[in-house]
Amino acid sequence: MTKVKSILPIKPLKSKNILEGAVMVFFGFLALYPLFFVLLTSLKSNTDVIMNPFGIRTFEPLNYITAWTVGKVGEYLLNSVITTIITIALQLLVIIFASYAFGKLRPWGSSVLFAITLIGMFVTSEMTTVPNYMTIKNLGLMQTRWSLILPYTAGGLIMGTYILTNFIRALPRELDEAALIDGAGIWDIIVRVDLPLIVPALAALVIYNFNGVWSEFYWALIVVKQDHLKTLPLGLINFQSQFTSSYGVLTAGLMILMTPVITVYLFFSKYFIAGISAGAIKG
């Protein structure tokens, strides 16, 4: 038998699955077409948007430049990047320390403390919004980036610590014991033996928290009033009223907001979809 290598990345559907395939192609189209429509619109002139809604005759990359400068999307993007990076870095730091304590060091009473923190998973943002607003105000952090970063950091801690603690608890103990016999100190074991084992789990953690921080809208709407601190989701609202009828520019701004998440998603879709089972625990 000769093996024919298919040029298509995926094998064509088997004939008995034609009906299923057709149904799925239709729904796949429904899921992806709006995004494609936005992409197409973002590259067109406004006349083209009106005259020729489903095709493209003009090519207008200037939309992106207008969105970036006049629409301040560049500034909002920078704010989102800074806020997200600092938040994720802080979260990782706090989560690694806490999970290591819950998973390995296990001080007296830690399992009780661990159980108590899990209650926090059921807390909804409406319950914490008003007091957090006052706390940020009393700390003098209003109209600074920290008004976003600190509550965001706190928001992702419990789930992250829960996931990483379970991961650490499942790690083999033999390595620690071997290192101990070799005369390694506490810190040697943490930095040289255990930390490298934790690293692979961190990717999933970062991805899980990244989307929440990047997309957050409700809290940002309440605390951030000045343009120079606005993150993309919030900035996009300004932007929308500024370019109500310039569809090309509006959709270009939209593309700039969506592209980073979609890119990360396409590379790490496995982790995103695995996050479902983790998210399901939260329910």
Binding site: F27, G28, A31, L32, P34, L35, V38, T41, N211, W214, S215, F217, L232, P233, L234, L236, I237, Q240, Y247, L250, T251, L254, L257, M258, V261, I262, Y265, S269, F272, I273
Partner: peptide
């Protein structure tokens, strides 16, 4: 493909659908 919309920020979804 079908999971893709899940990861898009709510603000983007709203602005897109408004359009």
């Amino acid at each position: 493909s079908l999971y893709l919309p899940v990861i898009i920020p709510a603000a983007a979804i709203a602005v897109m659908w408004r359009y």
